[in-house]
Design a binder for these strands. Structure first.
Lengths: 153, 153
DNA sequence: CGGTATCCTTCTGGATACTG
DNA sequence: CAGTATCCAGAAGGATACCG
């Protein structure tokens, strides 16, 4: 294989990001890709980003919009997203006080790849459920290639 | 805006998926989108999917490819991904035994949205680092009107 | 309203030792 | 080689109470 000019399609970029991830070598220096994925991979960030993509929300609105989050985690996740520059916090000195959160341009730019992922999940969760059901029921039936021994057990 | 025909662009689908997520109502029935995102959002799944996207791997190869994973988590994550139909497991009855893992078509179909996300992370981690640094340094300096502008907009 | 502070449980995942 | 089994520490996160 001769190495041509660096490819710039998403798959090639992903492969390079992964190789960089390999060389970054865990402990001291965190891989930037992994760093970002950890942030949006937590329990609430993605839900809050999607909620704020629909429209700006006040603290209480967000809480009603995501009913099963505690105020503790709501605050903490908002602070984390804010410190990463994905959302902005706007305080209005009304009485009672009101605070509005909205996506920044950076946060908005995340919507496109995020939407692709959510869209995939939406399209394929049926197949995933079937795969789980297949494993629960039949388990080992489907193996067909002569070179292999049957899998599992 | 006429909402006669349902829009089918990724953003519209994402909005609908989110609304479905809202109505699905947490406790008993898990939202399918959330379900999928939980799976690939864990500590190792994404790394293993990317590794298997490059080529099929045997158990030991995968272990060397992701050095800081324990055999326990390697096995567990492989089983989870297999039960979701994202990867397949092929046992060769050689001596010593060898087992190969590869992406299924379903798993391969995840690569496109995943690549979009990794690509975003790769492109924007600089901005994120700057945002964090800004917060550490300036702290409260940048905050504009903590008690001032009560006007909403 | 928009948060903090504190306590306490659950769940993740690392270390280690053993097996077919 | 490709796993299992067991134990345990630490992080994530829920419940509750309180505050400006």
């Amino acid at each position: 294989m001769t190495d041509m000019e660096p490819l710039d399609d998403p798959i090639s970029r992903t492969v390079r990001a992964f190789e960089q991830l390999q060389s970054a070598e865990g402990r001291s220096a965190q891989c930037p890709v992994r760093d970002v994925l950890d942030r949006i991979g937590d329990k609430w960030s993605m839900l809050m980003i999607i909620a704020l993509a629909l429209r700006p929300h006040r603290f209480g609105e967000l809480h009603r919009s995501i009913p099963d989050i505690s105020k503790r985690m709501l605050t903490q996740t908002l602070r984390d997203l804010e410190s990463d520059g994905l959302i902005s916090r706007h305080v209005f000195a009304t009485s009672p006080p009101s605070v509005e959160y909205r996506l920044t341009p950076l946060g908005t730019s995340l919507l496109t790849p995020l939407a692709a992922l959510v869209d995939w999940a939406d399209r394929h969760h049926g197949e995933i459920s079937e795969a789980r059901a297949r494993l629960r029921d039949g388990g080992e039936a489907i193996e067909d290639e002569p070179q292999f021994a049957a899998s599992r057990q």
